[in-house]
Structure formats: structure tokens, C-alpha cells
């Protein structure tokens, strides 16, 4: 297959991802505007980050002044999974896909782009480049629409749309947790810890929400790694 054919193939694979992103980033745009961001700020955040969970946590920290360390810790924890995906995908790339191409295209490593790319026998740089196009535009354009229409839609509809992004998180976790009792236990630990950090006044008063997510996630994942080690698998979400 020529590079052009590879690119077009990737482009086609990316379309369903882009459509999915459109709806989720729409919800992100609405949320960002609802907590005080301008529409262009929401769009800029989406264009430069391209990540749902990280952005959602990020904008919640941004509204408070001077929590740069909390921002850094939350982004590193939430986005740590991308490192693993990058490592995993780096094993399947063609010879030409290295150096500057990896530095450029690494930016586009998202859960869904990774999932499609890693299912290929060999990942060429043309295919990967094509794969990123629709998701990137979907993510950016959806944010723009959400941020602009957020003010026009009735309050009750906007409210309901705020749940979309969490619906997506559930859709990623629930099916895998159902199939794997160990994962279900680890997810349960994270859920209980997160509840404690929210509802126990002693914890909620002293630990910011962004940091609490990082602490709960790291503790639960460490407990999982200790008690339920994963044997040699692809193992990426």
C-alpha cells in the first residue's frame, strides 16, 4: 500500500472516533463555559490537550488561583496511561516511524486512537497521521459548538448534557470491569476511596478535588498491582 492509501485508510478508521468525540467535547465546552471560561479558552484547551479526563480535571483546577503543583500532579496521574499506550504502540511501528514523526504524532495519543492503531499489524506513520485527523477536528469543533450553544440551549438540556462526559468514562470502565473480577475489585477500591475523600470532612477540607482523584487512583492501582498482578498481556485500556 502506498503512503497515500495508508493515510486514507487511517482517515476512514478515524471517522467514528471523531463523531464520538464531537458529542463528548460538546459536553466539555458546555461545562467549561458554565464554570466561567470564554468560548475561545475552552477551544484552546481542547486544541492543545486533546484529552477528556485531563481537561475536565484541569479546568476545575484552573478556576482557583495558584494551584500549579496540583495541576501538574493531576495531569501527570490522569494522563499516565498515555505513557503506557505510547510504549505499547512504539513496539508496533514501522521502521520509518521514528524521530521527529514520533515527537509530532505522539501528541495525538488518545485512548481511542491508540485502541485502533494497536489493532493494526504494523503501524505506519501515514496511517497514524490519517487516523488523527477526524478525532482532532471532532474534538475541537465539538468544544466550539458546546461553548457557543451552551448559552442558547435551555438550562435543563445543558444540565443533562453535562453528564455525557461521565457517561463516556462509564462506557470505558464498566464493560471491562464486568469481564474481570480483579479489575472490578480495583475499580471498587478507587470508588470507595473517592467517596471517602468527598464525604469525610477531615479529608475533603484539606485535599483539593483534583489532588484527591490522583491519590485515589494511585492507591487503588498500586493495591491492584500488588495483590492482582497482571501477567504478560497487552494490558492497555
Amino acid at each position: 500500500m502506498t503512503a497515500k492509501q495508508q493515510f486514507l485508510r487511517g482517515l476512514r478508521f478515524g471517522v467514528p472516533i471523531g463523531l464520538g468525540y464531537l458529542s463528548v467535547s460538546f459536553s466539555f465546552g458546555i461545562m467549561a463555559v458554565s464554570i466561567g471560561f470564554d468560548w475561545w479558552q475552552a477551544v484552546l484547551v481542547s486544541m492543545l490537550n486533546l484529552t477528556s479526563a485531563g481537561q475536565l480535571a484541569g479546568i476545575q483546577i484552573m478556576v482557583h488561583p495558584a494551584q500549579y503543583a496540583a495541576m501538574l500532579i493531576s495531569q501527570l496521574t490522569i494522563n499516565l496511561r498515555y505513557s503506557f499506550m505510547s510504549i505499547s504502540l512504539s513496539q508496533k511501528t514501522e521502521k520509518k516511524f521514528r524521530g521527529i514523526y514520533r515527537w509530532l504524532l505522539g501528541f495525538f495519543m488518545t485512548d481511542e486512537i491508540f485502541a485502533v492503531a494497536v489493532s493494526q499489524k504494523e503501524v505506519t506513520r501515514a496511517l497514524f497521521a490519517g487516523l488523527t485527523v477526524a478525532p482532532y477536528f471532532g474534538w475541537t469543533f465539538g468544544t466550539l459548538l458546546g461553548a457557543l450553544l451552551g448559552n442558547i440551549l435551555p438550562n435543563i438540556v445543558m444540565n443533562a448534557l453535562c453528564l455525557a462526559i461521565y457517561g463516556m468514562f462509564v462506557a470505558i470502565v464498566a464493560p471491562d470491569a464486568k469481564k474481570d473480577l480483579k479489575l472490578l475489585t480495583v475499580v471498587g477500591i478507587s470508588l470507595i476511596l473517592s467517596g471517602l475523600f468527598y464525604y469525610l470532612p477531615l479529608l475533603s477540607r484539606h485535599v483539593s478535588a483534583g489532588l484527591a482523584v490522583s491519590i485515589c487512583a494511585v492507591l487503588a492501582a498500586a493495591a491492584g498491582a500488588l495483590f492482582f498482578p497482571v501477567r504478560e498481556t497487552e494490558g492497555a485500556a
Binding site: 461545562m31 479526563a53 475536565l56 480535571a57 496521574t77 490522569i78 499516565l80 496511561r81 505513557s83 503506557f84 485512548d111 438550562n155 435543563i156 444540565n159 443533562a160 453535562c162 453528564l163 461521565y166 468514562f169 462509564v170 470505558i172 470502565v173 471491562d176 470491569a177 479489575l183 480495583v186 475499580v187 477500591i189 478507587s190 470508588l191 476511596l193 473517592s194 467517596g195 468527598y198 464525604y199 478535588a209 484527591a212 482523584v213 485515589c216 487512583a217 494511585v218 487503588a220 492501582a221 498500586a222 491492584g224 498491582a225 492482582f228 498482578p229 497482571v230 498481556t233 494490558g235 492497555a236 485500556a237
Partner: peptide, 25 residues
């Protein structure tokens, strides 16, 4: 490897609960 396998799930869970309960009116 195991830690990296579990971390996406624990992050998304901790982000969703209980924050999602307070995301609407």
C-alpha cells in the same frame, strides 16, 4: 506493568464518583 494497566480505570472511576452526582441540578 500491572500498575499501568490499572491506572486508566482507577482514574476514570475516581473522576466519575461522586463528582458526576453533582454535575447536574
Amino acid at each position: 506493568r500491572s500498575f499501568l494497566h490499572y491506572i486508566p480505570y482507577t482514574v476514570l472511576t475516581a473522576m466519575t464518583f461522586p463528582a458526576a452526582l453533582y454535575a447536574t441540578n
